[in-house]
């Protein structure tokens, strides 16, 4: 890794335009330019039209999805989640972790500190793994905001349906793995 290349902005930036958004602006511009050069102006216009048309269809969905997310957050505050999951184990713990994970909104910066807190407050490792798996495959917030509008209802519902058993499976596998690793110091 290079240590002394050019300095980025000192702060992670305001929420409206952060590093990854800027990167994506550049990617969109580059891809647009490439389409214009490789496929010609007609293809460029049709792609632009597709994107804008989809945007108009999607905006109401995004507004509703964000509101749903805000209601879910108000429903299940973080302290309640820690209380539910701390110290629980067994199938009941895995199922609760699955429910809690799918309701946890926000990106990795929200989920991992919560898992760490759970672990420290005595939650079993399989419960932590179930929680993280559920947050990543069943996370309602991300499914509603990104997946439903972009990939459609049929795809999203199918994926959520086949993903339902995954967090519990991951928890059970963790439990089995830990049986094998028991010789090692914790």
């Amino acid at each position: 890794m290079a240590h002394d290349s050019e300095h980025e902005k000192p702060r992670p930036g305001p929420p409206l335009l952060d590093g990854s958004t800027l990167f994506f602006v550049l990617l969109a511009l580059a891809a647009g330019l490439a389409v214009l050069i490789v496929r010609g102006p007609e293809a460029f216009q049709s792609a632009l039209g597709d994107g804008l048309g989809l945007l108009i269809l999607i905006l109401p969905i995004v507004v509703a999805a964000v509101l749903v997310g805000a209601y879910v957050q108000a429903m299940v505050p973080r302290e309640a989640m820690e209380r539910w999951l701390g110290g629980r184990s067994g199938l009941r713990g895995l199922l609760l972790a699955t429910a809690a994970g799918s309701l946890t909104p926000g990106g990795p910066f929200a989920a991992f500190p919560l898992v760490l807190a759970l672990y420290r407050s005595g939650a079993a490792i399989p419960v932590c793994v179930s929680y993280l798996t559920s947050w990543s495959v069943l996370g309602i917030n991300r499914a509603l905001v990104w997946e439903l509008p972009l990939l459609g209802a049929e795809f999203t519902l199918t994926r959520l349906l086949v993903s339902l058993p995954l967090p519990v499976i991951a928890g059970l596998l963790t439990w089995a793995l830990m049986g094998r690793l028991r010789e090692r110091p914790a």
């Binding site: 969109a28 792609a47 509008p149």
Partner: peptide
């Protein structure tokens, strides 16, 4: 983010 992502997506689809 969403408008930018959509535009990038529809351009990438062409490529």
């Amino acid at each position: 983010r969403i408008p930018i992502a959509l535009l990038a997506g529809s351009f990438l689809a062409m490529l």
